[in-house]
Simulated scan of single mutants.
Amino acid sequence: MKINYLLIIIIMLCLNTNILVAQDTSNTVAIIEPALSTVVILEIDGMACQEGCADKIASNLNETEGVISAKVSFKDKKGVIVFHPNLVSIEDLKSKITNTKVKDYVYTINSVTIKEKN
């Protein structure tokens, strides 16, 4: 009889151990290598103000897949964009700017300067 109890306890212990080992580990943190990013400065003509034109262009850029951040200044007539070149190209960014619609304004890109690569 003692052997039966001992056998049952051993089986229960083994089952318990399997359950503990098989627990969900979805809340573990994975370390992901940062992707290479590029910073580009675009000189933009055609903006009439900060609140309408520049902010709308920045908003459109920030909604673009691959763009990490975009800041556009009416005062400086420039946009500074940090992006993943594997996901979006400079040509895509330029197109996003020139296709932005605020009233009848037409935006043009005068120069492109790649500032740095990480």
Rank of each mutant, 00 (worst) to 15 (best):
I114K: 09
K78A: 13
I3W: 12
K94F: 04
S89L: 00
K56T: 08
L15I: 07
A48R: 04
K78W: 12
I114C: 05
I8R: 09
S73T: 08
T98G: 07
I90H: 05
V67E: 00
V29R: 02
G79E: 07
N60Q: 07
L20R: 02
D55V: 10
K115C: 01
V39C: 13
L61F: 04
E63D: 15
N118L: 03
K77M: 00
N27I: 02
K77F: 08
E116D: 15
S111E: 12
Q50G: 00
L42P: 11
Y5H: 11
N99S: 09
S89D: 03
T17R: 06
S59I: 06
K103P: 09
M47G: 10
T17Y: 11
S37E: 13
K117D: 15
L13D: 03
I109N: 00
G52W: 09
N4L: 04
T25N: 13
T28N: 15
S111G: 04
T113R: 13
K117V: 10
N62E: 03
I81G: 01
A22R: 14
S69T: 08
D76A: 03
V21N: 15
D45Q: 04
V40Q: 01
K94T: 08
M1P: 12
S37V: 11
Q23L: 06
E63Y: 14
E116C: 05
S26I: 14
K101E: 13
I10V: 05
N86W: 01
E116V: 06
Y5Q: 15
I97V: 12
I109G: 04
I31H: 10
F83L: 03
D24L: 01
I9R: 15
S111A: 06
I44V: 08
L36H: 13
T25V: 12
D76I: 09
E91W: 00
